[in-house]
Nucleic acid binder design. Structure first.
Length: 152
DNA sequence: GCCAACGTTGGC
DNA sequence: GCCAACGTTGGC
């Protein structure tokens, strides 16, 4: 059974447009350094679908649709001391952090902005919209996923 | 730039 | 194991 997710990225770091230019529109989703988010990454299956959310920017919102194209595997950026994602407690023998590969299915012609999500009462229980939420990887119930698609 | 909310660290 | 201090996230 397919599951649905939402992945956040700051567009100045990595955006839908960046992914669109990658070979096969595919890229590892690296750099997740939060245990709860990592655990969700590890639950993902190939062909699960995910929204691509732009955070910490002028118009935060959902900008595209992703497909999980490779299940979780160790994130090597955690081993590289020069990487902003370096973690001295992670090693190839004992990887602490994982990533999945994502493939862009569609860049939405019109983004669905955070403001619009908040105005949709059927979505009020979404983790994304809860006060103080900072998770960068979160599950989306199938019902909410379909509501969001219908708003696009 | 501000700041509330949250997660992590580390002394005790 | 507690919890204060600190760093980060991310909307506004």
């Amino acid at each position: 059974m397919k599951n649905y997710w939402l992945l956040k990225s700051e567009p100045t770091s990595f955006s839908v447009d960046d992914l669109n230019t990658r070979p096969h529109k595919t890229e590892p989703w690296d750099g997740v350094r939060n245990y709860q988010a990592r655990n969700f990454l590890q639950q993902m299956k190939v062909n699960d679908e995910a929204f691509f959310y732009h955070s910490n920017c002028k118009e935060p919102g959902i900008y595209g649709l992703l497909r999980i194209s490779k299940e979780a595997y160790p994130d090597p950026s955690s081993y590289h001391i020069a990487s902003p994602y370096y973690d001295s407690k992670s090693s190839p023998a004992h990887p602490r952090w994982y990533m999945v590969d994502v493939t862009l299915v569609k860049k939405f012609t019109h983004a669905l902005l955070l403001q619009e999500l908040r105005e949709t009462s059927a979505l009020k229980d979404l983790t994304l919209l809860q006060k103080g939420n900072r998770l960068s990887v979160m599950p989306i119930p199938a019902s909410a996923f379909n509501i969001i698609l219908s708003l696009l």
